[in-house]
Design a protein around this nucleic acid. Sequence first.
DNA 1: GCCGTTTTCGGCCCGACTGTTTTCAGTCG
Length: 574
Amino acid sequence: MENADFSKIFWETAELLELKGDNPFKIRAYQKAARNIEGLSHNLEEVYQSGGLPALKEVPGIGESIAEHVEEIIKTGKFKKYESLLKEFPKNFIKLTEIPGMGPKTAMLLFKELKIDSAEKLEKAAKAGKLAKLPGFGEKKQQNILAGLELKKKVKGRFLLSEATQYAEAIVSKLKKIKEVDQILPAGSLRRQKETIGDIDILVTSKKPEAVMNAFVKLPQVDRILAKGKTKSSVVLKNDLQCDLRVVDPKCFGAAAHYFTGSKQHNILIREMAIKKGLKISEYGVFKGNKMIGGRTEEEVFRSVGLPYIPPEIREASGEIEAARGGLLPKLIELSDLRGDLQMHSKFSDGGNTIEEMAEYAKKLGYEYIAMTDHTVSTRVAGGQSEKEFLKELKYIDKLNSKLKGFYILKGVEVDIMADGTLDYKDAVLKEVEVVIAAVHSRFKMSKAEMTKRIIRALENKYVNILSHPTGRLIGQRAPYEVDMEQILKVAKDTGTCMELNSHPERLDLNDAHCRLAKEYKIKIAIDTDAHSINNLEDIKYGVATARRGWLEAREVINTLPIDKLKRALYIKR
DNA sequence: GCCGTTTTCGGCCCGACTGTTTTCAGTCG
């Protein structure tokens, strides 16, 4: 069982309880547990196997009864309470609440009054005008539900961080031109740099909010307006991404920034701390009674509850508050800490640029080195080279290096891990290479035990420096292959192998939670781009963002080292 | 259902906008 499986069950349990109109605090408890399990770096099943119920109860949001539910799910593969709740409703009924504008109350009312239990029936009834006649409904509400259905059909899921970043930057640059706009900050999950983004939240300070609102909803990117008020508006952009704008007074910028950055759970924890101190925190500031005592900056908000500044990327209610209180916050890695990029491809395999062009661009980015890691023979679709061809590339790199001043091209390779865990280049060839990156590119559907064994065998090869995209997932397209990550990390630690954090926006692999786990195992990480052209080299920022979400510091990332130290670190296994 | 630097019981974050309402419920973030 993966953590995502547990969290899905508890999310849906909460949803079902909500449909039933159960105690809202109980519902919140299930949601909180689901959210915390989602962000957990350890596998919940393994937590239970090693420490039983008491270990489960250590997880925030898991108490007596949810711990028992988890145990039940592990032992029996079932969760009786959830299944009996599910039986109380028609099949797929809870999916109705995924439609924007449809909450549990509306869904239940429509079911009771019109027997609506599917999106299809909902659409039919709305089109026939049956909804508008119900008590509490009207023409507008009916239209909104139809629009929500349309949106749901079009938008399959969340947007990649890279996509949302581009859209947000375009909006921000337009908003900056509005003269009534003072400060502007993209907030929400985008500011926390989550790997996928549900919608763009933008915060603006202005003395004339209405002027900003009017300009915002008229932006060329806007397809339609969902809501427009004095200080808050929501629109759907032409690419179907929702964008919310909120305007506040400059004096509460910090409080608003903190609030709109989230995460929701983090905010709740901070607000609870405030209450204990006799304070109240809202997006308008920090208040003692009616008196505002802070909120111009985010620092003031944190200070009001006795904490230092917590970077947005780790505001996930996953231990950052405790760390901040104990003075144990990590000094998160920054883009400028990196001295080179350790995986990329050239025209020698499937890259779009020559080695010289890649090196030239890398120099412009301020790097001191790159590793050229073209594909090997098994990855023929990606122009993988035979050993003989590859040895020629190595000689070519030697020649380039003799001409370069103040820049170094490491001789690297992205070698394939075969189904049995052997590599597709002989050790005699790998011996000539400075950076050996091993990767799984085939046979993704192996059992967890087989895949784990396969990868471990590769890690045990003394020439392998880095395990590339360790789970093989493609966000929104391909699930990670089954692998026992803790087992892999243990072997990586024992053998002195690094884990890659592949910065490709669809990979981000290791993900944030795995980075944090690797940190616990004291394993070094290589953040690289896997660039196939000069255009991809700047994707490194998404890797750094993920590393920051995984609490990584510069000293835990191998390519923050200067070249001589890096070479020594790479030779540690031999 | 969870949780404790006021509590093992009694709290549980806070506010905007909409649509349908004469004062608010529902939804969302």
